[in-house]
């Protein structure tokens, strides 16, 4: 019978608190904003944080209060932005994004400088002399981006990460984990990309990887639209200006400009 009194004490206190709380809940009810709930319902709910807010709830509140633009949701893309702008009665322009790996240094194009047998992540490998590959700018291929991608659209093929353009929603998670910083967001309808991130001088870059951009500026000269710029021995194509004529890709001696 020793146990009866403690049980009574704890359960009575528990019940009293429960009843008190439920009364308090009714008494101090705060009507939650319908607008916020509507906005939240429109969002995809992936909680990826690509908008810069703490999950979809935070973004919904900011949008409903007019503090954020309705086009910040990358996974939702154009459809969500349109739905949101209809809901809020504001106009908005969107360009869907997609992530691109700017490296094409697959196993047959680069050599291994050393054999890495440590922890199997790109981050760990890149701390060891900048990674095992001869090119210190390129993809390590241990797949940190593959693990982080919530949409399973990245694979490592022949030592280089490849992003499936059709599946990618442009949330940018992969770009934030890549220790080499070689994943960037481009307009989803981009035409040509320089698949190299090596900023070393031509001869050095070429030695590291047979398909490296050597900064010869042939692509810059051949482009009629001024879309290609070579800075730091590396060509970069401006998505907005590129029309997809493909002359740069033809002119490139190391074939690092790809569709």
């Amino acid at each position: 019978m020793q146990i009866v009194l403690p049980i009574i004490i704890v359960s009575v206190i528990g019940i009293l608190l429960g009843v008190g709380l439920s009364f308090a809940c009714v008494l101090m009810h705060v009507p939650s904003n319908k607008k916020i709930r509507d906005v939240r319902a429109t969002l995809p709910g992936a909680n990826c944080g690509a908008c810069g807010y703490s999950g979809c709830d935070g973004y919904a509140e900011a949008v409903a209060n007019g503090e954020a633009e309705p086009n910040k949701c990358t996974p939702g893309g154009e459809a969500t932005a349109k739905a949101l702008s209809e809901l809020l009665g504001v106009s908005v322009s969107t360009v869907p994004k997609t992530a691109v790996v700017t490296c094409d240094g697959s196993c047959d194009k680069v050599q291994n400088e050393h054999l890495y047998s440590g922890i199997s992540t790109c981050k760990a490998a890149s701390m060891m002399f900048g990674g095992p590959s001869s090119c210190k700018f390129g993809c390590i291929g241990l797949g940190d981006c593959v693990k982080v991608c919530p949409y399973n659209c990245i694979t490592v093929e022949n030592g280089v990460a490849v992003i499936d353009r059709c599946k990618c929603v442009g949330c940018g998670m992969c770009a934030s984990v890549c220790p080499k910083g070689i994943i960037s967001l481009h307009n989803a309808d981009y035409h040509h990309i320089v698949k190299c991130s090596n900023t070393q001088k031509g001869a050095v870059a070429k030695k590291a990887c047979s398909t490296a951009c050597i900064g010869c500026t042939k692509c810059e000269k051949v482009c009629e639209f001024g879309a290609v710029k070579v800075t730091n021995n590396l060509a970069v194509i401006d998505d907005e200006k590129c029309t997809g004529c493909g002359k740069c890709a033809e002119a490139c001696p190391s074939k690092c400009i790809k569709v």
């Binding site: 004490i9 704890v10 206190i13 528990g14 608190l17 429960g18 008190g20 709380l21 308090a24 809940c25 101090m28 009810h29 705060v30």
Partner: peptide
Amino acid sequence: IVFILIIAALVQFIEMALKR
């Protein structure tokens, strides 16, 4: 056990009161 119960309920209550 009693204190855990009370503190948990209390914090909930404070949260509601502050929100209101």
